[in-house]
């Protein structure tokens, strides 16, 4: 905690930059677009961005945050989103009760996580590589299950009020997906910062061999994190497919790069250099509002992509230019 104070005074600006880099960047993006696009800073638009873009991205990015905290990268989060959605929609279409379908969806996520856990904890494969293999296999599984990649639509007769509740429900005027983000980020945030298990996860992430020699059950921790990550990502898949009453193959892969970007930007811009929930959420919000703002001022989707790339690089340059002076 006293790292910033212990440094000579000329580096305070750099340390402050790291602490406020992400919020400052978000504030800047919000300010610029409010000035450029009249419709940007309205309740309707902000709510729209939060519900349509930020919520699901945030859930997947939280799953990624757990993986990053334990020192890995989970390339199969998109796969877990897809398999969760597939199992959920398949069960709903077959006439199963929605609660049971949710259970099946989660089970698919747990399965994905278990497979990763087997490779990572049992065989000792690096998480990045293990989850890359899972990504490929998940892709094929979806093709096998859908005759080469056809979407599965819920028959009109099976769209029950319960399904609509998951896809479009809200409580106190706030959509279900945002409640879930709130719940998950509080839970994971507390887990990482306030519990013994969270400290153990971070210890494994910083120095796995040291953690092992200190007597931590490193393999069990990595296995639990894999399973948790898969399960949380599958939740996003269930929400996504309930929202559109359909399962669209490989839709989850769209979340992969964004979630990596958000989790790593959050990590890079934290003073401790560790994965953290507020950083990830700010990263997701930054991407979401940036894309939306560019859309409102009339930029095409490919310029949005260029903008996101420039934004990531600018944020990183800002962060690391500051850090280099400190180090």
């Amino acid at each position: 905690m006293s790292r910033a104070q212990a440094r000579p005074s000329r580096s305070i600006s750099a340390a402050e930059l790291l602490r406020f880099g992400l919020p400052a960047m978000l504030a800047l993006v919000l300010a610029v677009f409010s000035a450029l696009a009249p419709g940007f800073l309205t309740v309707a638009n902000v709510t729209g961005v939060l519900v349509n873009s930020v919520a699901l991205n945030a859930i997947v990015a939280l799953a990624m945050t757990l993986a990053v905290a334990s020192g890995g990268t989970d390339l199969s989060v998109g796969t877990a989103v897809d398999l969760g959605g597939l199992a959920f929609i398949a069960a709903v279409s077959a006439g199963q009760p929605v609660a049971l379908a949710v259970f099946f969806g989660l089970l698919a996520g747990i399965g994905t996580g278990l497979f990763n856990a087997l490779l990572i904890a049992r065989l000792g494969v690096t998480p990045f590589l293990a989850t890359l293999g899972t990504l490929f296999i998940g892709h094929s599984l979806q093709q096998l299950a859908t005759d080469g990649g056809n979407p599965v639509y819920v028959p009109a007769g099976r769209i029950t009020p319960a399904l609509a509740l998951i896809g479009h429900g809200s409580c106190l005027g706030i959509p279900l997906s945002l409640w879930l983000v709130l719940l998950l980020s509080t839970g994971i945030g507390l887990l990482l910062t306030r519990t013994r298990f969270g400290r153990e996860v971070l210890a494994v992430g910083i120095q796995a061999p040291a953690a092992l020699y200190s007597g931590l059950p490193v393999r069990r921790i990595l296995a639990l994190i894999s399973i948790a990550s898969g399960t949380i990502a599958a939740l996003a898949g269930i929400l996504l497919s309930a929202h559109v009453n359909a399962y669209v193959p490989y839709a989850g892969n769209a979340y992969l790069l964004d979630s990596i970007g958000a989790a790593f930007i959050g990590t890079a811009l934290s003073r401790t250099g560790r994965a953290n929930v507020p950083g990830t959420l700010l990263g997701v919000a930054l991407f979401g509002f940036m894309t939306n703002g560019l859309l409102l001022i009339g930029w095409n989707f490919y310029w949005q992509q260029v903008g996101t790339g420039v934004l990531i690089l600018l944020t990183l340059i800002l962060a690391f230019a500051g850090r280099e002076r400190v180090g």
């Binding site: 990268t73 490919y302 990531i312």
Partner: peptide, 27 residues
């Protein structure tokens, strides 16, 4: 030069290139 982690830097570059390649022809 800037010390940005390789995964992150090349990921940003990936985004940038994926967008830039669509610009001249409007996608």
């Amino acid at each position: 030069r800037l010390g940005i982690p390789d995964l992150l830097a090349t990921l940003g570059m990936l985004f940038l290139l994926a967008g830039l390649q669509l610009v001249p022809t409007g996608g």
